[in-house]
Structures are given as C-alpha cells and as structure tokens.
Amino acid sequence: MANHTHVQNPKVDVQYRRKKNAEEMKHQIVSFTLMIFLTLIAFFAVGYEGFSAWFSVPFILLLAVVQVIFQLYYFMHMSHKGHELPALFLYGGVVVAFVTIWAFLTVVWI
C-alpha cells in the first residue's frame, strides 16, 4: 500500500503530527485526572457513614460506568474514527453481559 498521507514537505508534516500527538496526550492526562477523581469520590462515598446503601450503591455503579467510558473512548481510542467494528464487538459483548447478569440476579434461584 502506498503512503498517500504525506505532503510535499515531510518535515512540516512531522511537526504537525507531533503537535497533534502532544495535544492528544494532554486530553489523556485530563481524562486520567478525572478517572482518579471519580475513584476518590467512589471510595469516599463508601467510607462516609452519612450515605445509606440505597444511595451509595447506584451512585458508585454510575461512577464506575463513567470511568469505564473514559477508559474506552480516550485511553483505548474509541473516540477516533475507524472504530465502528470495535464498537460493535464491544457493545455486542456488553449486551450479552447485561443479559447474563440480569438472568443470574432474577431467574436463577440459589
């Protein structure tokens, strides 16, 4: 496959790409900071006596889902284009995951 992406002056192209990579790395650090923050809130919500289980369980589950979205879309680059099939594979797995957990929590009696 020929490489068509390069312009006439490859040095300029490299500088542009370095800059884009550096910008992306900044976004990654921001999402990492948010992930740490969400983790801290989750641990705090459980350690704090004032919250009842009715509040803290759904709350920490929500924080986990948000954190995983950051992980998938930023750290694993799912926000980039060319990730249509990966999204299909992953969400296919997530659908089966939900049905399995739902079944075990409702239909299965132990």
Binding site: L90, G92, A97
Partner: peptide
C-alpha cells in the same frame, strides 16, 4: 475483547 467481556460478565 468482546469475548472477554462475556467471560467476565
């Protein structure tokens, strides 16, 4: 990874 999701689920 889709399969791994099902395994862990």
């Amino acid at each position: 990874l889709g399969g791994e999701t099902v395994l862990f689920a």
